[in-house]
């Protein structure tokens, strides 16, 4: 069991005054039987009026509104999370050939997790990967998902900046490269096209230095914000796979939100009025909330105008009559 204190700060700097700014924030870690969100606090500067609700997928969404003109917006999410052991597939997993019999039922139960989506369309290239994974696996659904995840990990290059936040799997397929978002999307496509429900997980990976008592490990790309996929394996339930790391989901993966793809779960998304461009920086810090040895270690990951901030389209200012 790992316990983390998490500080996720998103800051927008505008090059002119903006007003009537609204944001949807998806930063509250999931609270369920595998992970406990012990506390959560969201602070904005300037101060905003807000509300929150749980969406149809069980994610917490906080909505902030700031009407008065401002040139800078900082959104700080602070939480304490307890991560339990991740579940592993039950032994004796269902054979892949058994999927056909339950195909219709799975579609009825899990339509959203099977249907093609904006970022994850069904493409022949994805079907190819699916075939390769099927040929190379042990013939079970669990083995297939794991092989698919490994295959993506080994065949695609993790390359920061290779794609952008609105890239669909088409881009990463063409480049054979991408970031965690793309790796997760690829895995979703591969397993969905084979008939297995799968969902996008937006979350964090805590670097080794922040986990007390464990050896320093490098987190790929130095990113704290992370994404992977969970696949529904009949008989076992939802099992996570991390095609970016190529390793099993462990005590350092913190889940924040589930979606059909990235489009459902950007950490911060919003609109504002005013003719001003913006620059974005995101800063995520972890520390073990309770360190037995009394040491406080801080892992820091900083990125600029990167994926983790979400896209903020500009709403053009309304014209006054002249």
């Amino acid at each position: 069991m790992n316990r983390f204190h998490l500080l996720h700060a998103t800051e927008f700097i505008y090059d002119g005054p903006v007003y009537e700014s609204y944001n949807e924030v998806r930063l509250r870690p999931i609270h369920d039987d595998r992970q406990s969100c012990l506390s959560f606090r969201l602070i904005t500067s300037p101060a905003s009026r807000g509300s929150s609700y749980k969406d149809g997928y069980g994610n917490w969404i906080h909505v902030t509104s700031i009407l008065a003109p401002h040139r800078r917006l900082r959104i700080e999410a602070e939480s304490v999370v307890l991560v339990h052991e991740a579940p592993v597939p039950e032994p004796g997993s269902m054979p892949l050939s058994g999927l056909d019999a339950v195909r219709a039922d799975l579609l009825e139960e899990h339509f959203d997790w099977l249907a093609p989506s904006a970022y994850v369309p069904y493409l022949p290239e994805i079907a190819e990967i699916s075939k390769t994974a099927e040929a190379g696996c042990d013939g079970t659904v669990a083995g297939f998902a794991e092989t698919a995840s490994d295959f993506i990990h080994n065949s695609f290059v993790y390359q920061k900046g290779a794609t952008h936040v609105n890239s669909s799997v088409r881009d990463s397929l063409a480049l054979r490269a991408g970031v965690c978002q793309d790796f997760a999307h690829l895995l979703l496509g591969v397993v969905r096209m084979r008939g297995l429900p799968a969902r996008y997980v937006s979350g964090y990976i805590v670097s080794g230095s922040a986990t007390a008592g464990t050896k320093q490990e490098e987190v790929i790309g130095g990113q704290a914000s992370h994404a992977w996929a969970e696949v529904f394996l009949p008989g076992s339930g939802w099992i996570g796979f991390d095609p970016t790391l190529g390793k099993p989901i462990g005590l350092r993966h913190i889940r924040v939100a589930y979606g059909r793809d990235y489009g459902d779960v950007p950490p911060v998304r919003g609109v504002y009025k005013g003719r001003a461009g913006q620059s974005l920086s995101v800063d995520v810090r972890f520390r073990p909330a309770l360190d037995d040895s009394g040491h406080e270690q801080i892992a820091e990951a900083k990125s600029e105008s990167d994926h983790s901030g979400g896209s903020i389209p500009e709403r053009p200012q309304q014209h006054s009559q002249q």
Partner: peptide, 12 residues
């Protein structure tokens, strides 16, 4: 007149 009555620019 426009500033006073027509345009709303955020609450104080």
């Amino acid at each position: 007149i426009a500033r006073t009555y027509f345009y709303y620019a955020g609450v104080a």
